[in-house]
């Protein structure tokens, strides 16, 4: 089955961990993930500047490793990201900001990518809230 997965909460929310476990289980079960779309506070997942305490799980880092390892399409909503200070090199230059905190494997793009993924997938699975 083809899944599109949308995430609306930051990496420290339990729903982000559940989403990661779901995504891992989906691939392990032989399913396909057509795209991961990070929206609302979910965009914080892609920030390089997150530092998890040593005795806590670093879910953002696990997301990064998971997306890289499986060469998934990890799309971060550009409007939601700009509003929350998550910028790649291009956007930091465009808006004259000193910090760049988003790079590969993440891509900034628009909401059309969410709709496109939902159309291409058999199921759209959303994770948000606590």
């Amino acid at each position: 089955m083809k899944f599109a997965i949308a995430l609306f909460s930051a990496a420290h929310a339990p729903s982000s961990r559940r989403a990661l476990l779901f995504a891992q289980a989906a691939l392990a079960g032989g399913h396909e993930i057509v795209r991961l779309f990070f929206y609302q506070d979910g965009v914080y997942t892609a920030s390089n500047n997150l530092v998890a305490p040593q005795d806590e799980q670093d879910i953002a880092r696990q997301w990064r490793a998971f997306v890289s390892q499986h060469q998934l399409d990890g799309v971060v909503c550009i409007a939601a990201a700009l509003r929350r200070g998550v910028l790649n090199n291009e956007e930091a230059t465009r808006y004259q900001r000193s910090a760049v905190n988003l790079d590969a494997p993440w891509a900034l793009s628009g909401l059309g990518q969410l709709h496109d993924a939902a159309q291409a997938a058999d199921r759209l699975i959303c994770f948000g809230g606590p």
Binding site: Q40, G112, L114
Partner: peptide
């Protein structure tokens, strides 16, 4: 907070794609 606006943005984007 931005949630209401961001929910609406999903709807408007979908409408723009004639979905």
């Amino acid at each position: 907070g931005p949630s209401a606006r961001e929910a609406l943005d999903i709807v408007l984007a979908g409408g723009a794609f004639d979905l």
